[in-house]
Each structure stands twice: as C-alpha cells, then as structure tokens.
Nucleic acid binder design. Structure first.
Length: 200
DNA sequence: GAGACGATAAACT
DNA sequence: GTTTATCGTCTCT
C-alpha cells in the first residue's frame, strides 16, 4: 500500500484535485475494507470562490474544518438527506477542500449493492450499476461515511487515499476533462463558471 | 435522453 | 425563516 502523505494535501488545491483522479479511496469499518477509484472531483477555495462555504474567510462551526491543515476529511450534511465527503487541503488557516463527487468501487461489490439496493451486484440492472456511486451523496452511502468522520485524519486507517494498494496498481492519468461545477446556488455568481470540476 | 420537482433537516441569518 | 457543493422519480420526447 502506498498511502498519500501530508505533503500531498498541502499542495495547491487545484493540483490536489487533479492529482486525486485515479487514486484509491479506501474506507475501513467493521473489519470491511472498501476501495474505490476516484474519478470525479471539484475544488473549493475559501479566498477567491463565492461558492465555497468558507468564502471570504467566513468561519462557522461547519466551515471551521476547512481551515485545518490539509489531510483531513470535511463531511457535511446537505438537503436534509445526504452527506458529502471533502478532502481538506493546504496549510492551516487557509480554507480549501476538494469534494469527492464520484468513485468506481472495485471490491466488495455485493456489500455495496446490498446497502444501496438490497440485492447482490449480479442482480443489478444497468441503471443501478451506473448510479451506484456516481455522485457525492452516493459515495458517502456506499462507503458508510457520515458526520462522525468529519475532521478525521486521512493518515489514519478508517478513511484514507492511496496511489496503489495490494492487488491494485498505480493508475497513470494521462488525460481528464474539466468542466463547470455542479449544483451551485445563485449566490455563486461568476464563480459558477470556474472550470474546477475534474473528471477522469 | 433530458428536464421538472419534491423530500427533508442542519446550518445559517 | 431561508438556504442548500443532492438524489430518485416522474413526465415527456
């Protein structure tokens, strides 16, 4: 296993976002280890980005986590229904994070499909396979992520990210797409048009 | 395949 | 009282 270290998370947030593509997101709980390849992320920067929860140095109980030193998780609850997982980046007191929008689960598919659809993976229809973990709320449902992981260090062993892990080689990401971010409210204004969504 | 819309509660003002 | 970094289901083509 080749776990990403603190230096990785202290890089410029846009660099971290791009470099997270093709990495393995690993979640361990109850003796189960679930691995997913990160294939879609979005960057959020506190100082220049109106759609960031911590825009312009805004500090609240929720946003405080984004001011942490890079390398921990920021999990928030949204729309009364879903959790979203972010990776905190950059030095302490600089609010910035990368939202994990989508992963491709590569092991324990029956555990995931039972949790999501209450049936084994081989019984899923095409639509269910496509939709199993292709959104931020779904990633958290698949990986059993909730607010108890908010602030958790990604250098420990409940939730972490690797460039390679037993049986899964490092992935060289040669090319990726760049688009506008998804789902931003109207107060995001011009930051809506930033091309800070990266898809592998 | 694409657009509309309601669910639902924490965080914020 | 208002807002929300979403999702699944519904409708229509």
């Amino acid at each position: 296993m080749n776990k990403l270290d603190t230096n990785f998370y202290l890089q410029d947030t846009l660099e971290v976002a791009k470099n997270l593509l093709g990495k393995y997101l690993v979640r361990e709980y109850d003796g189960i280890k679930i691995i997913g390849i990160i294939n879609e992320v979005e960057a959020y920067l506190g100082n220049s980005d109106k759609s960031c929860h911590a825009y312009n140095g805004k500090r609240t109980n929720r946003t405080e986590m984004m001011y942490n030193k890079g390398g921990c998780a920021y999990v928030y609850f949204i729309y009364g229904v879903y959790y979203c997982l972010n990776v905190v980046t950059e030095e302490e007191d600089k609010a910035a994070a990368v939202l994990i929008r989508s992963v491709a689960i590569v092991n324990n598919l029956d555990i995931i499909s039972n949790a999501r659809y209450n049936k084994n993976y081989k019984n899923l229809n095409k639509n269910e396979i496509k939709n199993i973990s292709n959104g931020p709320g779904k990633v958290c449902r698949c990986l059993n992520i909730d607010k108890s992981l908010n602030g958790k260090s990604l250098l420990e062993n409940e939730l972490y990210i690797c460039s390679s892990i037993n049986g899964f080689d490092e992935i060289l990401v040669k090319d990726f797409n760049k688009t506008k971010r998804i789902g931003l409210g109207k107060n995001a204004e011009e930051s809506k048009d930033f091309l800070w969504r990266f898809i592998y």
